[in-house]
Design a protein around this nucleic acid. Structure first.
Lengths: 120, 120
DNA sequence: CCTCTATCTAGACATCTGTCAAGATAGAGG
DNA sequence: CCTCTATCTTGACAGATGTCTAGATAGAGG
């Protein structure tokens, strides 16, 4: 299930977009991950997985929370997985997903905004 | 230039996606804003504006930083503006853009992830 | 080996998105 | 009023995206 290594440049952890211009490469990399979470279904999937008991949830539970077909949920989980936002593990019949906290933390840090954006 | 009121539910400031499932409405609202920043050009625009002297930048400066036409940059600025991420103000011939820090702060807070995602 | 359930893949299709060229609008300064 | 520059709007088009149906794969349990 772990088809991807960490995707986000962790050095961004202390370099919010408000402090210095992103390089073109950084912006492409970040956009890839933000695109993954920039969807209502995927944001809800993320919150369902992260807040589920044990920090993980199986596809069956997740599918039940939407009025969408299995393949569609599967597609969204794949997008999140390939972006390094979640990871899945098969245990028996079920596949369990959990969030990869480092990725979310990096995204959060990138958007941190100081009280006063700039003072000349 | 201020065609939109604040778009993001500020009550999300203390409710990261890792703590509780998002409602469908919250996820739609958040996805709208994340979609706005989930593009390499717009992320760079955002960082250029936010880190520019005085916290603002005019379109002319921004356009020069890309190999894209004026209308394309204008389009991206409009997307960011309508999502409540930036705001623009005309002063004479030029239009100056600045970030709306509350929006970025909300997005950042939503993605905050505790050290241990859950302990059973 | 067969079947049942859970999950994923493949392919199709409508919609959304990023980009550009052409033209419109808005001040500045004659 | 005219022109020049900065910015935005419109319309067109290729490519990406979300969803579905149909079919494939993987364990569990006879």
């Amino acid at each position: 299930m772990s088809k991807q290594l960490p995707v986000v440049d962790q050095s961004l952890c202390c370099a919010p977009v408000t402090r210095a211009p992103l390089t073109e490469q950084q912006s492409v990399e970040l956009a890839r991950v933000f695109k993954a979470i920039a969807d209502p279904v995927r944001l809800r999937l993320l919150s369902l997985i992260a807040s589920h008991a044990g920090g993980e949830a199986c596809v069956y539970d997740l599918t039940g929370a939407f009025e969408l077909t299995g393949p569609t949920i599967s597609h969204h989980l794949k997008v999140l997985r390939e972006a390094g936002v979640i990871d899945g593990e098969r245990r028996g019949t079920w596949v369990y997903y959990r969030v990869l906290p480092d990725t979310l933390r990096t995204l959060s840090a990138v958007l941190v905004t100081p009280e006063v954006v700039a003072v000349g």
